[in-house]
Design a protein around this nucleic acid. Structure first.
Length: 165
DNA sequence: GCCAACGTTGGC
DNA sequence: GCCAACGTTGGC
């Protein structure tokens, strides 16, 4: 099992869209490295952080899982699509996408600023300067660490209410 | 809106 | 195959 991070602009497609749709084809990726991750390395059941980019605040909003392995991205054949690719043929498609399924939305988004503050995540791809790949691998350690932040953040602060009395 | 970082294109 | 020019991403 591998772990990933998928970026999406929430105004285009947010975690709430995914929750509503239940599952979606991750189409429109037009970067070879990102494509190769989807095509060659993603397997059924792999877990993905769902990241909102170009938003305020930017950050990780939840989890999805790979529900179908990579298949040709049909938008590349659609002349009306902004993702149409003249050089791609059905016999030899250039772009592929996986299908992902909603798993959960975090009660609170984990902001990029917060992630950058975490010593344990210093090496994470997402927090590196200039990192703009829309499909990124995440290590199991990073994945577990971030999940623990999400779960801690969604639990009532019992410790605080006790100490106040 | 700015701009740094990165990817792609195309002339040579 | 090099690299300048251009386009895109995405944080700030």
């Amino acid at each position: 099992m591998k772990y990933w991070l998928l970026k999406s602009e929430p105004e285009v497609y947010s975690i709430d869209h995914l929750k509503k749709d239940h599952q979606t084809d991750w189409e429109g990726v037009r970067n070879y490295l990102a494509r190769n991750y989807m095509m060659k390395e993603m397997s059924l059941g792999d877990l993905c952080f769902f990241y909102h980019s170009n938003s305020d605040p930017a950050g990780i909003t939840g989890v999805a899982k790979v529900s179908r392995q990579a298949e040709p991205d049909l938008l590349q054949f659609n002349k009306k699509s902004e993702f149409y690719d003249q050089k791609s043929t059905r016999q030899n498609p250039r772009w592929f996408c996986v299908q992902i399924q909603f798993v959960k939305k975090f009660k609170n988004l984990i902001s990029l600023a917060r992630l950058k503050q975490e010593y344990a995540l210093q090496k994470m791809a997402l927090v590196q300067k200039g990192q703009r790949l829309s499909v990124q691998p995440v290590s199991q350690t990073e994945f577990d660490f971030i999940l623990s932040i999400a779960e801690a953040g969604s639990r009532p602060r019992l410790d605080q209410s006790v100490s106040e009395n």
